[in-house]
Simulated assay, not measured.
Amino acid sequence: MRRLACLLLLFCCTLARAELPETDWLDLMPPEDRKALEDMPEISHDSPEGDGTFGQQGGLKQQKDLPAVMYSAKTVAGLDGKRIHIGGYPVPLESDAKGRSTLFFLVPYPGACIHVPPPPPNQIVLVRYPKGIALDDIYAPIWVDGTLKVEKVSNDLADAAYALDAGNVRLVEEGDL
């Protein structure tokens, strides 16, 4: 009986550690938003940030004259409460006493904190990671595992349509590619 209990425990631990399938960023958008994004005209990147001059505030906040899909906070209800594995780029917001990021936005492409326009809110995920991770380079991709929530978050930097309570965050390694 003891041997059976040990085998069952080992099996459960193996399942818990098994990597979740990767969630694609487009999976966070409802089908109508994906279609609108595909049909969207070219966007100009002419801005103070694009010129390398950062005299005005902006962060990830949207301009006011973009196609509607670029402001979309429409979510996919079936993802609420689902455990996911998603790759992206961090935009640090808060850190602990050791300088590890404990709260950050995850975005689908590098440099979203300085490029205009930023992703739509349904392509920005607020990540809560109390353990913290050292983020020396915001252009280095990371993997995040955790439970996704449909949760609108707004601060001075950005608007997000999702939040994720992370159980694991790690840098993407060469073997992942």
Rank of each mutant, 00 (worst) to 15 (best):
P92M: 02
E173C: 08
K152H: 13
L157M: 06
L106N: 14
L93D: 00
L171P: 03
I84T: 05
V144M: 11
Y129C: 15
V153G: 02
Q63T: 01
G55N: 11
L66S: 06
L103S: 11
A166Y: 00
D176W: 05
N168T: 12
P92K: 01
D137T: 13
W143K: 13
L126R: 14
D96L: 11
V169N: 08
N122H: 10
E151P: 15
S101Y: 01
A77P: 08
G59H: 03
K74R: 11
V125S: 06
F105P: 00
G81I: 05
P108G: 06
E38L: 04
I86W: 09
Y162F: 05
F54K: 10
V144P: 15
L157G: 04
C113I: 10
K61G: 06
G52Q: 05
E42S: 10
I114M: 04
G132C: 12
G55Y: 03
K149A: 08
V150E: 00
A112V: 02
A68C: 02
A158Q: 03
L157P: 15
A163E: 00
W143P: 00
V116Y: 06
R128M: 05
G111N: 12
E38I: 14
L93F: 01
F105T: 09
Y109L: 15
L106R: 05
A166W: 00
D176Q: 08
D46K: 13
S44V: 09
F105L: 08
D51M: 09
G132M: 11
D39C: 07
F105I: 07
Y129D: 15
M40P: 13
Q62P: 13
Y129N: 15
T102G: 03
F105R: 10
D165M: 10
V172T: 12
R128G: 14
P118S: 11
L60G: 08
D65P: 01
C113F: 03
D65K: 12
L79S: 09
V169C: 02
K149T: 10
I133G: 02
P117A: 14
P118F: 04
L103I: 11
G87P: 01
A161R: 08
P120D: 01
V127T: 01
V150H: 02
N155T: 07
H85Y: 07
E174S: 14
A134W: 03
V116M: 05
G59Q: 06
G59C: 02
K152R: 12
T102A: 04
D137A: 11
F54C: 13
A112G: 05
L148P: 14
I84Q: 13
L148T: 15
A112H: 07
P108Y: 01
Y71L: 14
G175R: 15
I114D: 00
D96S: 08
V144F: 12
L171S: 13
G78M: 00
G99M: 13
L106Q: 07
T75M: 02
F105V: 06
K64V: 05
G55K: 04
L79H: 05
G87Y: 00
Y162K: 10
L164N: 07
V150R: 03
G50R: 03
P117L: 12
I142W: 00
L135H: 11
